[in-house]
Design a protein around this nucleic acid. Structure first.
Lengths: 340, 340
DNA sequence: CTTGCTATGAGGCACGTACCTCATGTACGT
DNA sequence: ACGTACATGAGGTACGTGCCTCATAGCAAG
């Protein structure tokens, strides 16, 4: 049987009340008494029964995911996972909600983050582009005792705030390596398509991609990024224009998580002589594209893992516990048809 | 606040005792009373507080991992993860242990599985080659109320028994596709090296690999598998012999999880004109090999995920709960230097 | 010596559920 | 009408911890 607080009290030669005071950092205990209890903890290998503690506290957790308001399939998948997690974490008294924000307006995001509605929440996972406003708002949340994690995009990890997501520079490099190897000896140009290069993650991916191509595949040229702004017509136009100036397009790298529109346009434009295409994120659409050989590889991160990881980290923060780093590391996955 | 059993009792118009009888499938309740309670559960959206239930039961879980007795680095990593999991699951009153078996002797495995020591255990994750003896022993364990999962290798999933691991056929196919694409236009032969082809997983990987190469890369020939039997000298000899008969070796596929010896030999033998090499599993050694470009890609499964998944599944079985399938699906990961 | 402060002990109630006992009710067969 | 078997209620204790109140002991300053 595992030692309980009662055993601790006996071992330390103090009362249950004192053990309780020490365990919960309550004032009014002399330092040497604290030490006695801590020694007993060491000696018995006492592990606090979190389960019973939470029961006694009547504690439940409320976490919030702040997500952009796009119709993105990747985001839709993410939201589905959040709801799934809401089910499976219910047994542990954890409730998660989703709130949407206008990603483009830092002031509005900061306003939402400052709103008093959020004060009943135990922790927030924020998916928003980096900006001074958001950074400040986060700092204020932390002052109020509300933990935050940066989710997928945006802020860099800081001391106050974990980052849940992949290293986008490495993800871009991975795409670059695959592109290089898949194209091996064929010289040519590579089209890079992004929704907007203002997003930090797109930028980093592009940097990582370029680094690999420039270093190891001198016969390949990476063209300037095309920005779609999420507009179908514009996407078609700029890709066609690019085709006119560059006849020798051998590869296409779609940087953004919204691959659908660029992919459709590219597939149509390059009806024959399809270049090697690499995109990001697994969605019903990109999965089908991989199956039908419209795409050669996907660089992805597991949305379910992202969501659960954010929740686990927020809870660990709340409990003042350590996290199991190896479990929370989000991997950059390479998907081809065979390992879907 | 979430409804409790008390609320349930009021809603159903019965006593707490009856609610308890229904919730825990105890006899002595008329069917229509059972229905009343179940309706109340539906209506209130009652979710049993597993945490409180386990507290009351004084329940703790003991799970066992039965692993082969090799000195394999992959296995060492696995064991490290099990100890890690033992720490992090301690808060949920779950204890996991490791026991070693002689993988080569089905009778001995069956004997271990039948030993009375195992009767105090709640569930067992078994990593052992498939055999009728093991199959029978498992069936007997299940009769005794001890759940089992097939871990990484061995048995196919059955109704009684989940499989935790990757689809090895798909893993082989993934290796095949990468090999084909990395070699693209260079014709040649591919060396396949296994510890033994008696292992089901090696066989399946090879089948998946061949399927892809034969279908899509006719300029490549897959040679008969070389079996090392884990012997360094033998490995060096058979690889050298193979080199004499086949001058045009363009690729090497190391099927087994123990890649170290084959890799060392291959690296030495092919000092110049290194073929494309693909191996399995991430270990300190294969990771270093990837970094130093001795290996071109690794096909891996996450040991931490494997371990935690097995534990979660065993616990869910024990609690009679459903598992979250998407979380328990072990992915076939593709590792290159950039996404390590 | 009194006053006041701090450190500690003793004990109880609560959380939501499991599990036990005992009493009572109800329907059935004889 | 009686005994029997089954269905249900009522109430208690327990699990390990948190949190509260009250009592007491020790010590130092006035």
């Amino acid at each position: 049987m595992r030692p309980t607080t009662k055993d601790l009290a006996i071992e330390a030669g103090v009362s249950l009340a004192t053990v309780d005071r020490v365990l919960n950092n309550r004032p009014g205990v002399r330092q040497d008494t604290v030490d006695k209890v801590n020694q007993a903890i060491q000696k018995l290998g006492f592990i606090r029964n979190v389960v019973a503690a939470n029961l006694a506290r009547g504690k439940s957790y409320r976490f919030l995911f702040l997500l952009p308001r796009t119709g993105d399939e990747f985001l839709a998948g993410l939201i589905a996972r959040i709801h799934e997690a809401n089910q499976s974490f219910a047994a542990e008294m954890i409730q998660v909600d989703v709130m949407h924000i206008h990603e483009s307006d830092p002031h509005q995001i900061a306003k939402v983050l400052g709103s008093p509605d959020l004060e009943q929440v135990d922790g927030i996972a924020i998916m928003a582009p980096e900006s001074p406003q958001v950074r400040d708002a986060k700092a204020r949340l932390i002052e109020k005792g509300i933990d935050t994690v940066s989710f997928i995009a945006g802020q860099v990890a800081s001391d106050h705030d974990d980052f849940v997501g992949i290293d986008n520079h490495a993800a871009g490099a991975t795409a670059g390596r695959l592109m290089g190897r898949f194209l091996d000896r064929s010289a040519g140009a590579i089209l890079v398509i992004a929704e907007t290069m203002l997003a930090r993650d797109s930028l980093e991916r592009r940097l990582g991609f370029d680094e690999i191509i420039n270093a190891d595949y001198p016969h390949l040229t990476v063209l300037p990024s095309l920005e779609t702004y999420g507009d179908t017509e514009r996407t078609a136009r700029i890709i066609r224009n690019s085709l006119l100036s560059h006849r020798n397009i051998a590869g296409v790298y779609i940087v953004s998580s919204e691959a659908r529109v660029p992919l459709e346009v590219v597939t149509e434009v390059f009806a024959k002589n399809k270049p090697v295409i690499i995109a990001h994120e697994r969605t019903p659409f990109t999965e089908a594209a991989l199956r039908s050989h419209q795409v050669d590889a996907l660089i992805t991160q597991d949305p379910g893992h992202l969501v659960r990881s954010a929740i686990r980290i927020l809870r660990a923060h709340r409990d003042g516990r350590e996290i199991l780093a190896s479990q929370e590391k989000i991997r950059i996955e390479v998907l081809i048809e065979e390992n879907l």
